[in-house]
């Protein structure tokens, strides 16, 4: 216990120092080994072959309803999970549109990747965006000052800012999930509230088996099995953020 605490404090001291001076260097060194293997690491595997537009819309509806996501009809919109073309999901990876016409236009789901090495967490000046032990990248809506640095830092466009008061755009409200105020950032939280109850995320439940969810560090988990069997890609792997959302091709 004692040595544990001492060790913890020492690590804390060293990381505080190292992190403040060379956050990227330190992270890069860690990142070479890929995902950390300690504890749980929640991951999602999206089967792009099985997903149809109807299923995707069902997933989105389930999420929107449960999480009080306002429907805002302009570019100041708030979205946690939405439909996007492969071309936008994987920019630069889809070949030229002239010769490969089908794939870039195919559609799939887009959401926060819950990156193992998240730049949004790195830049947030208040720790309103933070990473849980199990890898979920969380938001503290009461702490966020709305500087939107995290939006500039996320290379996947996963974050939304409440330009408007979101409550004005809610038709019905789920009393079991907090609504947000204007001036704060939000994004998909991997249904942390359900995971903590031992359930799977809403979109996974609605996806009729087209989305797998589980612990990446557990070799017997469903996600590990399906990743071992089929070819999967992540978004922008070259940036070293290590997304935990995989796409089966």
């Amino acid at each position: 216990m004692k040595s544990n605490r001492r060790q913890f404090l020492a690590t804390l001291g060293i990381t505080a120092l190292g992190w403040s001076l060379f956050p990227n260097l330190l992270k890069a060194a860690e990142a070479t080994s890929g995902h950390s293997l300690k504890g749980k690491r929640w991951a999602m595997v999206i089967d792009t072959k099985k997903l149809t537009v109807e299923i995707m819309e069902k997933c989105i509806r389930a999420c929107n309803k449960a999480h009080n996501i306002p429907h805002i009809p302009d570019k100041k919109e708030v979205k946690w999970i939405w439909i996007e073309t492969f071309h936008h999901l994987f920019p630069g990876q889809m070949g030229d549109k002239t010769h490969v016409s089908e794939y870039p236009e195919k559609k799939s789901l887009c959401l926060c990747n819950h990156c193992e090495n998240p730049p949004c967490v790195r830049v947030c000046p208040t720790k309103a965006t933070f990473q849980r032990e199990d890898g979920i990248v969380m938001m503290d809506f009461h702490r966020c000052i709305g500087c939107r640095y995290c939006m500039a830092a996320c290379p996947f466009g996963s974050r939304s800012f409440n330009f408007y008061d979101p409550r004005k755009f809610l038709k019905e409200e789920n009393p079991n999930f907090p609504t947000r105020t204007k001036g704060v950032v939000e994004k998909c939280l991997f249904c942390y509230e359900r995971i903590d109850e031992g359930k799977k995320p809403y979109c996974v439940e609605a996806a009729e088996g087209a989305i797998y969810f589980g612990d990446l560090n557990d070799p017997h988990s469903e996600v590990r099995k399906v990743l071992a069997e089929r070819y999967a890609i992540t978004r922008k792997p070259e940036l070293g953020t290590f997304p935990c959302v995989y796409y089966l091709i």
Partner: peptide
């Protein structure tokens, strides 16, 4: 809110 600005998502 910042909705009065030209900024967006």
């Amino acid at each position: 809110g910042l909705s009065i600005t030209g900024m967006s998502r």
